[in-house]
Design a protein around this nucleic acid. Sequence first.
DNA 1: ATCCCACATTAGACAATATCCAAATCAAGC
DNA 2: GCTTGATTTGGATATTGTCTAATGTGGGAT
Lengths: 124, 124
Amino acid sequence: MTAQRRVVAEVLDGDHVHLTADEVHARAVAKLPEISRATVYNTLGELVSLGEVLEVATDKRAKRYDPNAHRPHHHLVCAQCGSIRDVHPSGNPLADLPDSERFGFTVSDVEVTYRGLCPTCASA
Amino acid sequence: MTAQRRVVAEVLDGDHVHLTADEVHARAVAKLPEISRATVYNTLGELVSLGEVLEVATDKRAKRYDPNAHRPHHHLVCAQCGSIRDVHPSGNPLADLPDSERFGFTVSDVEVTYRGLCPTCASA
DNA sequence: ATCCCACATTAGACAATATCCAAATCAAGC
DNA sequence: GCTTGATTTGGATATTGTCTAATGTGGGAT
């Protein structure tokens, strides 16, 4: 555990928002001025491998990182500004996919992404 | 309707796979050698605006374009090679999101993405 | 305490994807 | 056959992410 990794972990743990890699880097630099972009990417990649953090790619803008990896949940995304909220719908979508629709795939995971406008963007 | 747009539409309509913009460009060039990348992007963007084609961003690789915009469906994505199949699960995920989980958002759409390995990647 | 070594970090180059823009070109109507 | 306005083009640019070679660092062995 180096200073750089601690800083990245602190940034993610700070508030449970869904930051882009660049936002993580910006906040890390505020705490440790000479941390490099590559280290942030490396560390985020490791955290993802360890299962401590989830990668969320809802659009072609930057990936976002979700520190809430331990409780299953889905995402509500603002189509305009890209902000994300965690949500916990009822039901189990994996069970809704019959074998006849699996085409021989080994299905291991489901992501449900609700799209809409957040209150801020809706009123603008 | 210009020759370029017709070619892009033909490529998408050809077989119902989920091509990246670059693959669309490659196939369009095969039919009309001097079509430029910018035109392909422009035309794809217009088709998306018209609702004729869906954009699918399942990862940080290229966006893919889904010509099957008129029948609601979801996607089964190979985590390794990125290939996509359309699937039609039962159930209605929108109904599974209670008002208390909407945080004031105007929720208009749901995307369900199943992830796994396609038969080819699973056997490799 | 010092020396090594494996590993982490850095800065910047590079790659992939997408978008923008000015200039050239085309199509349609007169 | 012109003029006009939209379309296309090619290249420049932006954004995001990855790679690499060089440097730095901590911790164990001696």
